[in-house]
């Protein structure tokens, strides 16, 4: 394996550079996936059948979630920065912080789902609610997956140190996490805020 020391660790081998580009292309595919959910969501607005509509939204949990995710996106940015400085300890701290914020997000979202169901809004109630739960759920599932992925990276960085391999993984994970933040911003704006207008 040829290692190019003039570049940050995560870019230092050709294999790493391939993986980063490949992951960007994967993220593009994810854009298409969420676009489909949004397209369907917009078309189903108001198609609530006998069930409730956007009146089930509450602003507080949504705000908590938004700030949790925005901050986590900031901390993972700092983790990558620390990684580039070669500061393993700071990097792991920031990564841990990121995942903790992710957990907060998941906790609040799950609680929100329970309230919805309590108010008679389930995924089976109407076309509108089916797509609402699917959109939120798809994002939530991504965050959950991201949580375990992040955990794996923490374990591997602690175990093997900062190698071209682990650094590459951590960097790619950061791309994924930022991307989920972007998706959340769109959900926040066009599902929640628009719904509460």
């Amino acid at each position: 394996m040829k290692i190019d020391n003039s570049l940050p660790l995560e870019y230092s081998t050709e294999e790493n550079r391939l993986k980063i580009l490949g992951f960007w292309i994967f993220l593009a595919a994810e854009i298409a996936l969420f676009a489909t959910l949004f397209a369907t969501y917009f078309a189903y607005q108001g198609r609530t059948g006998n069930g409730p509509g956007t009146e089930i939204f509450e602003i507080t949990p949504v705000l908590i979630n938004t700030f949790a995710l925005l901050t986590s996106s900031f901390t993972i940015g700092l983790a990558v920065n620390a990684m580039r400085l070669g500061n393993k300890k700071a990097m792991l701290t920031f990564l841990g912080l990121t995942l903790a914020l992710g957990l907060v997000f998941l906790g609040v979202e799950i609680k929100e789902f329970f309230t919805f169901v309590h108010e008679g809004a389930t995924i089976q109630t109407s076309g509108y609610l089916s797509i609402l739960f699917s959109t939120l759920g798809t994002h939530g599932a991504h965050v959950s997956l991201g949580f375990f992925w992040g955990l794996f990276i923490i374990i591997q960085v602690s175990k093997y140190g900062l190698t071209p391999h682990t650094a590459n993984k951590a960097f790619i994970f950061s791309l994924y996490w930022h991307f989920l933040d972007v998706v959340w911003i769109f959900i926040f704006s066009f599902v929640y805020l628009k719904g509460m207008m």
Binding site: L33, T36, L37, T40, A43, Y44, R47, T48, G49, N50, G51, I123, Q124, T125, S126, G127, Y128, L129, S130, I131, S134
Partner: peptide
């Protein structure tokens, strides 16, 4: 996504492509 919607309609009773209840 489309296939998942279809599968969920058939398996979990969602209302994406039904005729009543706001499905389309």
């Amino acid at each position: 996504v489309a296939l998942a919607f279809g599968a969920m309609d058939r398996m979990f009773g969602t209302q994406f492509f039904t005729i009543g209840n706001g499905g389309m």
